[in-house]
C-alpha cells in the first residue's frame, strides 16, 4: 500500500488527492501538454481559413500582404524568439534554485511581451488609419487613396479580416501570457518555487513557447507571402 506512509514524506504543496509529489507534477505536465494540443488545434483552424482565402484569391493576398510592415513584423519576431530564450533560462533557473536569475528572466520576458504589444499597436493604428479593415469597417475611399493596386481587387477586405483575426487571437494570447507571467513572477518573489516544485514555471514556459511558435508561423504566412 503506497499511500499509508507516503503522508509522512509529502511536502505541504502536494494536494490531498495525490499520493506523491511526482504524481502531482507529472499530472500537471500531462494536463499542460493536452492544453497545448487544444491551442495548436484551435490555431490550425485559423490557418486552414487563411489557406482557403489564399487559394481563392491568390493575387489579392499577394498585393494586400505588401501592406504589412515587414520591419515591424521582423522586430516582433526577434523580440518573441528572444523572450522564449529568456523564458527557457528562467525555467532552468527555477530548476537549479537560482532565485535571482529566475526573477530577472521572468521580468525580461514580460518586458518583451510588452514591446511586442507596443509594436502591434503601431501596426494596427496604421491599418486603421488607412481604412484597411475587415468588410464591415473597410474604407474603400481611404484604401484607394492609400494604394490603387489594393482597391483594384474585389475581395481585399478578406485579407485584413483574417489578418486581424489571426493576429488578434495571437495578441490575446500574448496579453494572457503577460498575466500568467506576472502571476508566476509574484509567486517567485514570494519564494514559492524550489528545485522540487517549479512545475508552474515550467508550464507557463511551455505556454509562452507555443505563443512564440504560433507567431513564427504567422509572420511568414502573413508578412512574407512571396
Amino acid at each position: 500500500m503506497s499511500s499509508s506512509n507516503a503522508s509522512n514524506e509529502r511536502p505541504a504543496w502536494v494536494a490531498h488527492h495525490f499520493d506523491t509529489a511526482g504524481q502531482q507534477v507529472s499530472s500537471a505536465k500531462l494536463g499542460m501538454w493536452l492544453f497545448l494540443a487544444t491551442e495548436a488545434l484551435m490555431f490550425s483552424g485559423l490557418f486552414l481559413a487563411y489557406f482557403l482565402i489564399r487559394k481563392l484569391h491568390p493575387d489579392m493576398v499577394l498585393v494586400a500582404s505588401e501592406e504589412l510592415n515587414k520591419a515591424y513584423g521582423g522586430v516582433n519576431t526577434v523580440v518573441l524568439i528572444f523572450s522564449s530564450f529568456t523564458m527557457a533560462l528562467g525555467v532552468r533557473a527555477a530548476q537549479v534554485g537560482n532565485q535571482k536569475s529566475l526573477e530577472r528572466n521572468l521580468m525580461i520576458t514580460i518586458a518583451c511581451a510588452f514591446i511586442f504589444m507596443g509594436v502591434k499597436y503601431i501596426e494596427y493604428s496604421a491599418k486603421i488609419h488607412h481604412g484597411l479593415l475587415p468588410w464591415n469597417f473597410f474604407d474603400m475611399e481611404k484604401a484607394a487613396h492609400h494604394s490603387a493596386a489594393l482597391a483594384s481587387f474585389e475581395y481585399t477586405p478578406m485579407f485584413f479580416g483574417i489578418y486581424f483575426t489571426m493576429t488578434g487571437l495571437h495578441g490575446l494570447h500574448v496579453v494572457i501570457g503577460i498575466g500568467v507571467l506576472t502571476w508566476i513572477l509574484i509567486r517567485a518573489r514570494r519564494r514559492e518555487f524550489t528545485p522540487d516544485n517549479y512545475v508552474a514555471v515550467e508550464n507557463v514556459g511551455l505556454y509562452w513557447h507555443i505563443v512564440d511558435l504560433v507567431w513564427i508561423f504567422l509572420f511568414p504566412l502573413l508578412y512574407l507571402v512571396k
Binding site: L52, I53, W135, M158, I162
Partner: peptide, 27 residues
C-alpha cells in the same frame, strides 16, 4: 477546439465580416 474556432469565426463573421463563409464577400 475546432468547434471553438469555427464558432469564433462565425461570430467574427457577424461582427466584422471576414467573408470566408459568405460567397457574396468572396468566401
Amino acid at each position: 477546439p475546432i468547434l471553438a474556432i469555427t464558432l469564433m469565426l462565425l461570430c467574427i463573421e457577424r461582427v466584422l465580416s471576414i467573408g470566408i463563409f459568405d460567397p457574396a464577400l468572396g468566401g
